[in-house]
């Protein structure tokens, strides 16, 4: 079985997938990746299920030694990944040979990078998910963040298909900025705010403070005025919900949010804009713009269609092979090459 031997953990690296679905009723936070789009793109590049668990790296990435040959892909924030010291590209399949060393550095654009391995990580599902929930010490590798010396085993790739080097088309690669406009659906507690408060929310710029983690983002900016007070009888909290407590500044609820809460929620960031929020760093700026539900849902459907088309395009270019892949190092005119060889099945 191939594995990753962790040399350096990076700042905060955890195993995450889509998160726990259906356990909110028991008070279990969903967890899961902060950026669901980058996760899906990484998995598609290595021919995995779109929702297979990946490594989520924060601000500064990890480094590891490949034990065995494997295919990987990195998406999201650009942490300048190198293999044996040579720069490799994001958003395309990377083949690693036994003993190769992959190193990541500080994120220049974006905040979180995602690393998928073909076959996925050999880790148990806890409540239907491999996601690490650090506060509850659940999931991932024994409920912990990735640490130096950890060994992450990789499932053998099922199916004997060589999937080549896949590249995400330019127009599907997200570009991260330090100033974003997050589109929102107003509610559920709109009637708790004054007309002034609503206007402040939709016309001001807010700065991400350093109090931001996988649970939530505290923003700083003009105070949003309440009409009926800031406390409600606790109700359910969705991913991207924007709470306004008594101090009048927004807190956006992210992947590790608690399931319920007692502060007024003025709006909720729409699904397709959450990945861009997930890539913000302290000091970055957000403006909010309201759109209606139908429009937001059309954007989700459009993104879903694009992702399905992409998977389909890659699938049709698959070549059926037999046996396992063999790797050779060859010298041609003084240059070294890695060569992977696999027998093609006669159709």
């Amino acid at each position: 079985m191939s594995s990753l031997k962790i040399i350096n953990s990076g700042l905060l690296t955890t195993i995450q997938d889509y998160g726990r679905v259906g356990y909110g009723q028991y008070g279990v936070p969903a967890a899961g990746v902060m950026d669901r789009l980058a996760m899906q793109l990484a998995n598609i590049l290595v021919d995995n299920d779109r929702y297979e668990a990946v490594l989520e790296m924060t601000m500064m990435g990890l480094s590891f030694k490949a034990d065995g040959n494997m295919a990987i892909a990195i998406t999201g924030a650009d942490m300048f990944p190198t293999v044996n010291g040579k720069k490799v590209n994001l958003y395309e399949t990377i083949y690693l040979n036994n003993g190769d060393i992959l190193e990541c550095s500080y994120a220049q654009s974006g905040c979180r990078a995602y690393l998928a391995v073909a076959g996925g990580f050999d880790l148990p599902k806890v409540m239907g998910s491999k996601s690490t929930y650090l506060r509850g010490k659940i999931g991932g590798l024994n409920g912990n963040k990735i640490q130096k010396g950890d060994i992450l085993k990789i499932n053998p790739k099922n199916g004997k298909e060589y999937f080549g080097i896949r590249k995400i088309p330019e127009d599907m690669i997200p570009r991260y900025k330090n100033e974003i406009t997050a589109r929102v659906i107003l509610g559920p507690e709109v009637d708790y705010f004054t007309k002034n408060g609503m206007e402040t929310f939709l016309s001001s710029e807010y700065v991400l403070t350093d109090q931001c983690d996988r649970m939530g983002y505290r923003l700083e900016g003009p105070r949003i005025e309440h009409e009926k007070g800031s406390d409600i009888i606790s109700n359910g909290i969705n991913f991207g919900a924007i709470q306004i407590p008594g101090h009048g500044c927004p807190i956006i609820m992210m992947a590790d949010r608690q399931t319920t809460g007692g502060y007024t929620k003025i709006a909720n960031v729409i699904t397709v804009d959450l990945p861009f929020l997930a890539q913000l760093k302290p000091g970055d700026r957000v403006k909010f713009e309201k759109i209606d539900i139908e429009e937001a849902q059309n954007l989700i459907k459009k993104q879903e269609k694009n992702l399905l088309n992409l998977i389909n395009d890659f699938k049709t270019s698959l070549i059926n092979t037999v046996g396992t892949m063999r790797n050779f190092k060859i010298n041609v005119n003084g240059k070294k090459y890695n060569l992977s060889v696999q027998e093609i099945k006669e159709s």
């Binding site: 559920p188 969705n238 919900a241 849902q297 989700i300």
Partner: peptide, 8 residues
Amino acid sequence: YLPSGDNG
């Protein structure tokens, strides 16, 4: 019936 984002 109140919206909680585009999926809630």
